[in-house]
Design a protein around this nucleic acid. Structure first.
Lengths: 159, 159
DNA sequence: ATTCTAAATGCAAGTCACTTGCAATTATAT
DNA sequence: ATATAATTGCAAGTGACTTGCATTTAGAAT
């Protein structure tokens, strides 16, 4: 599994401040989860983790996720057949700074891949070829603003 | 929007029979929805449609969808931020016949694109380049068995 | 450091989209 | 025509959020 450099704590806190999001002890703990573990989190997994040590309320975590997402820190995604919503830190192409506005279409140059045996979720630091995206736009007549690509497969361990 | 030829009624009924799925009036109506409308259906949209004319029970439609999916007729997918599960007929690459077993990884050569303004869902009869999928496998160490790609954008009408 | 005020929290209750249990029916094979 | 495994209708249950509201608190302004 590849370890990619994510955004710094400071840049995230600045973003939150700018969005008018207050940093409470609970929210700091939620943020730390995302910073410390190279994996997508769910509302439930955060609640299990933070419930023990930090006894955070489910609804507070929920609202923290919403606030973080609206502030542009998190992206959400799902795997087909899975009821839960996953969240992970948005890692910008330049490794920490936000891209210019309007480039949102290709902002997240990574995707997710989940092992169908052990459930491990791995990041994939590559994106579909830009030229292919152009083909999609021409073929569909749509102007693409977002795309979500998720993989299932069998990881190296399980093979 | 492109109109692609889907599987024939007969081939679908054969598949269901083979899977031990009985064809009841209700299930026939569900199947007809998929055959008549070039769009993904949800449990709820089918219930609204069939509730009026055919007064089908929600749970029966639910179980029909499950049976159809297990028999290999339907695929399910979701759009991030959308709570509902969508279903659409699996349209094989050759336009009606199932592919050889083992080719499931690249069986569904189409994806979906939803307009963020009007909500229209359109099929996209193309798939990521096979060479790129190979790159993904090498980069991740995973053997890919499934991939799901959904787009959001602005359709020709809304632009 | 103290005050102020918009935000966040805890708790409880509500919503939505399924999902299941079970007794009564019914599509199919024989 | 009969047997029987599948399906149905109805009701109840589950999981994952999502919201309302009174109370508390982070962070800005003194």
């Amino acid at each position: 599994m590849k370890r990619a450099r994510g955004p710094s704590v400071e840049s995230l806190l600045v973003k939150l401040r700018q969005a008018g999001v207050k940093i409470t002890p609970n929210r700091r703990k939620v943020l730390d989860c995302f910073l410390s573990a190279e994996k997508p989190w769910t509302l439930s997994s955060l609640h299990v983790t933070l419930g023990k040590s930090g006894d955070s309320e489910l609804s507070s975590i929920y609202r923290a996720l919403e606030a973080f997402r609206q502030a542009g820190l998190l992206e959400e995604f799902r795997f087909p057949g899975d009821r839960q919503t996953y969240f992970s830190l948005i890692r910008h192409a330049d490794g920490g700074q936000p891209l210019a506005h309007g480039d949102s279409a290709h902002q997240h140059h990574h995707h997710h891949i989940v092992c169908q045996d052990c459930g491990t979720v791995s990041h994939l630091d590559m994106c579909v070829p830009a030229g292919w995206m152009g083909k999609v736009e021409r073929a569909s007549g749509f102007q693409i603003t977002e795309h979500h690509l998720e993989f299932k497969g069998i990881c190296g361990e399980c093979r």
